[in-house]
Amino acid sequence: MTETFAALLAAHMAADFVLQTGAMVRGKGRPLWMAAHAAIVLGTATLTTGTLHPALFALTLAHAGIDAAKTLSRSTGFVAFVLDQSAHLATLALVALLVPGLWASGLWASGHVADLSTLPALYALFAGAVVAVRAGGFGIGLLMAPWAAAIPLDGLPGGGRVIGYLERGLIFLMILGGLPEGIGFLIAAKSVLRFGTVREEAKLSEYVIIGTLASFGWALLAAWATIALLSRLPPLGIPSFPP
């Protein structure tokens, strides 16, 4: 069951946060755009599991239904984002629970291609990285949106987004690599670099603190969840960073 969930989770993260374009997000109220996204959902699930099981069609319909409900509700904030993704994760878990042998019945687990027993663990790593970096970018962006209009942002275009990607990616690697103490260095380095910018501007200072703590917290949760999932899968044999 865990292998099936890992495969479906990787497929979902690829479909929603890697392959879904801005035009698809904006056009989900139109049947063609919704159908295009649904096709990607089905395609990625088929690719990661190595099978075109009927359960994947049901999963695709559920995914489209959740997206349609969110579109009709016109909810666009952080809470709506979390509820939407929670509903998607619930459907993945339900399929894994009802069809636990989905991965085992697929092409990749058959052994006809190669020994791919570690593939589910790689799926878990991929999914965790996407959650930490890419999904975190959307989530933190929506969380901070109510305050963004009150903050004078005169830095590089997209610079804050890139900084967020980098810091969450580094935290994810540090936790999985067994170097949590490195996060303290990251906090110190960011504090020093930001000090001159925010020390005389209360609003900007609070905005940066809230955004940083939220970003760090998101990355930590993603890393811990990934470790929990990896603990139930065949080990990759990758040593942690410390000797």
Score class of each variant (00 low, 15 high):
19 L>E: 07
111 G>V: 11
194 R>V: 13
11 A>C: 03
71 T>Q: 11
121 A>L: 10
115 D>A: 07
238 I>N: 00
26 R>T: 07
165 Y>R: 04
94 L>N: 02
104 A>N: 11
92 L>W: 06
141 G>H: 09
138 F>Y: 14
161 R>H: 12
174 M>S: 08
66 I>N: 05
117 S>R: 15
11 A>I: 02
125 L>G: 13
51 T>H: 01
238 I>A: 04
215 S>Y: 00
227 I>N: 04
50 G>I: 02
190 K>G: 06
187 I>D: 01
126 F>N: 00
21 T>Y: 04
57 F>K: 00
237 G>Q: 10
3 E>S: 14
131 V>F: 15
99 V>H: 03
4 T>P: 02
194 R>A: 15
96 A>F: 09
172 F>N: 11
126 F>K: 01
30 R>N: 12
74 R>W: 05
92 L>Y: 07
99 V>R: 01
185 F>G: 05
102 L>Q: 01
80 A>F: 12
137 G>M: 02
238 I>H: 10
82 V>F: 08
11 A>M: 03
31 P>W: 12
194 R>C: 11
203 K>C: 01
151 I>C: 04
142 L>N: 02
111 G>F: 12
62 A>Y: 00
185 F>R: 08
51 T>Y: 00
213 L>I: 14
142 L>R: 14
38 A>S: 15
235 P>F: 07
112 H>W: 11
120 P>C: 06
108 W>M: 03
230 L>Q: 09
44 T>C: 14
12 H>G: 08
160 G>Q: 02
171 I>D: 03
120 P>D: 02
155 G>F: 01
97 L>H: 13
111 G>K: 05
206 E>N: 08
93 A>D: 07
234 P>L: 08
222 A>D: 05
229 L>V: 12
165 Y>F: 15
224 W>A: 11
31 P>L: 13
132 A>R: 08
44 T>W: 15
30 R>A: 11
38 A>D: 02
219 A>F: 10
181 E>N: 11
95 V>F: 00
19 L>K: 05
194 R>Q: 15
226 T>G: 06
235 P>E: 04
58 A>G: 04
232 R>D: 08
119 L>F: 13
134 R>G: 04
33 W>C: 03
153 L>P: 02
1 M>F: 00
12 H>W: 08
71 T>F: 13
170 L>V: 14
202 A>G: 06
142 L>D: 00
130 V>K: 07
120 P>M: 07
68 A>S: 12
180 P>F: 12
143 L>D: 05
1 M>L: 02
23 A>Q: 13
182 G>D: 07
45 A>G: 06
61 L>K: 06
95 V>Q: 01
183 I>P: 05
191 S>A: 15
134 R>Q: 14
211 G>Q: 05
77 G>T: 07
4 T>D: 00
116 L>S: 04
126 F>Q: 05
133 V>M: 10
138 F>M: 14
82 V>T: 07
138 F>C: 04
79 V>A: 15
62 A>T: 04
106 G>H: 01
169 G>M: 08
69 A>C: 09
137 G>F: 06
125 L>N: 05
230 L>K: 08
169 G>E: 11
